[in-house]
Design a protein around this nucleic acid. Structure first.
Length: 115
RNA sequence: AAUUCGGGUGACCUUAUCGCUCCUUCUUUAUUUUAUAAAUUCUUUAUUUAAUAAAAAGGGAGAGGAAAGUCCGGGCAACGCAGGGCGCCACACCAUCAGAAACGAUGGGAUUGCCUAGGCAAGCCAGACAGUGCCACAGAAAAUAUACCGCCUGCUAUUUCUACGAAAUUGGCAGGUAAGGGUGAAAAGGCGGGGUAAGAGCCCACCGCUCCAAGGGUAACCAAGGAGGCACGGUAAACCUUGUGGGUUGCAAGACCAAAUAAACUGGUGUUUUAGGGCUGCUCGUCCAAGCCAGAGGGUAGGUUGCUAACUCCCUAAUGUUUUCAUUGGGGAAGAUAAAUGAUAGGGGCCUGAAAAGGAACAGAACCCGGCUUAUGAUCCCGAAUUUCUU
């Protein structure tokens, strides 16, 4: 049974964890994302962090919309269901808001390359 | 009627699927705990009480009028504080109203700007005879005025003539002059007349200015009228002076719990095998002590709390009352933390359009409340301007 939940422990938080990911992790770039990843993270599941730069989107409303869409794509995607233990940081690079379907296609193709 | 501008109003509804945060009900599990009973011997088991955590299921709630800017004020918190002085910061026309308070609201006055000339708009509206400073460039001169050009007078040189004199041209020297030119943001009251060698408030009229002031107004302030020939540049967002007010820092405040690690501390150990050193050359003893074990304290990561209460708002009932409004009772109003309040797909209303189709602003709580400022599509209301039509 596939689970679409997105619990608190599936989010990456804590200053040390994040610093370690950006310092030691590898990165992949594919428009409109830059993904940092690190494995294994010592947990039975993956964790993710979503970042949208304030430089590109001045209004908090726009940043919230993009973060919510990315989160939905991740939540419903195949990657989360597969029992991998990656730490991910998904940084949104583009300077305009793109549709949900476009986001879904791109993000899933990136996550496929991780395997 | 249309368009534009200004002010207010306003802040779409709904279905399905999958999710997030908080609260709550119930069930199960785990841990701790209360009581009882039994076995056994000082623990175990069973039932039971309560608490906490996790999981499953059901129910409920879940962004704004500005949540924004962080410009004011207050609550709250920590630190500081006998009293006084200096300094620093903020504010500065008047009245009324509301308020816990403030730079709030309404109306008025003065100033400045604009034009249809009696309205509209604006805000760094205490003081420039308390003092010190500054005023670029240009210009002769920028504040105890000043003479570049010009104007006028005298002397002198020169020229001409009707020749011991007169007139004129061009120079020089001495003096008068702020009318005119030119510079500038600003040139020492303006403009007209008289006057004068030429000029000058030197004199006069009008305007302005200064002083006095009937009277009006709660007040700011306005002001009939009178007097004075006139002394007075700007800058206080330069320092400064006067008056009033102000402790400092903000929830990343503060309180509590508390891994790992390092150093210091306390206790033990420190041996017939286990460092090393002092008393002492050796042995014993004793003291110090590396190391090891345990502990306590402060406290980092992390977590809990502060935290959603009310001087607020909405709904509702009762009483008083002229609708308004006031008082009291009841109910309701997010609480996240690398930060939830959503994503996707459809349907319906609204606007544009013949239809197809397209459009819907500004914008996301971060301790709370009040005010201010700024942003804002459609609808509706009010006001102003312009254009067109009708009468």
């Amino acid at each position: 049974m596939k689970s679409f939940t997105f619990q608190k422990n599936e989010r990456l938080n804590g200053q040390k964890e994040i610093e370690r990911l950006f310092k030691e992790g590898k990165s992949l770039f594919k428009y409109p994302f830059k993904v940092y990843f690190r494995t294994p993270n010592g947990l039975p599941h993956s964790r993710i962090l979503i970042s949208v730069s304030r430089r590109n989107f001045k209004n908090a409303v726009d940043r919230n919309l993009i973060k919510r869409r990315i989160r939905e794509v991740y939540r419903q995607g195949e990657f989360k269901a597969s029992a991998k233990n990656y730490d991910l940081a998904c940084v949104y690079i583009a300077k305009e808001i793109v549709s949900y379907n476009f986001l879904a296609e791109k993000l899933n193709s990136i996550l496929d390359r991780l395997e």
